[in-house]
């Protein structure tokens, strides 16, 4: 995966900022995508390119259980979120949907807005192509990789039932 970084170094970026509840009267993913991160950065949807990354601080995705937050980011073209840490329901939703939520310590202080990044999920490495740096992250646990490889939890469940 390769793309440009959109850095929001703040901690506790919450689901109300990622997809405000005023848009939860629909689960249409294209419509949700038009409002991704609207209350944090109203310009985000206009500038994000397919495959770009969000880089953030601690506890990304805290608050509501709404999976709409993951769908909105996915739909807007975000390839992965790289954060210091994640809130647990967001993290779970991301795995279940096959969306990489990558916990990478120190990343919000090392990466600058607009840096080009390459993410290697299996190796657990983020390469900063702009700065020529590498950041390691803990690879996903096996069960999480299995779910992501299957394409999400429901595909995994169906595959297991054969």
């Amino acid at each position: 995966m390769r793309g440009y970084a959109h850095v929001y170094p703040r901690d506790h970026i919450n689901t109300d900022e990622i997809i405000p509840a005023r848009y939860l009267n629909t689960d249409d993913r294209e419509e949700l995508a038009r409002h991704a991160l609207e209350d944090l950065d109203p310009g985000f949807v206009g500038k994000v390119k397919w495959g770009d990354f969000i880089v953030a601080g601690e506890n990304f995705g805290c608050g509501s259980s709404r999976e709409h937050a993951v769908w909105a980011l996915q739909g807007a073209g975000v390839g992965a979120v790289l954060a210091e840490s994640f809130a647990r329901i967001f993290f779970r939703n991301a795995i279940n949907t096959g969306f990489p939520a990558i916990e990478c310590k120190g990343i919000s202080r090392k990466v600058e807005d607009g840096d080009e990044l390459e993410v290697d999920l299996e190796a657990g490495v983020v390469r900063n192509l702009t700065k020529g740096e590498e950041y390691k992250f803990s690879p996903f646990p096996d069960f999480a990789l299995e779910i992501m490889r299957a394409g999400g939890l429901l595909e995994y469940l169906r595959g297991r039932e054969g």
């Binding site: 259980s65 999976e67 779970r92 279940n96 939890l153 429901l154």
Partner: peptide, 10 residues
């Protein structure tokens, strides 16, 4: 505990 929609489906 709270879960998302995919967990709910499962």
């Amino acid at each position: 505990t709270g879960i998302g929609s995919t967990d709910l489906a499962a």
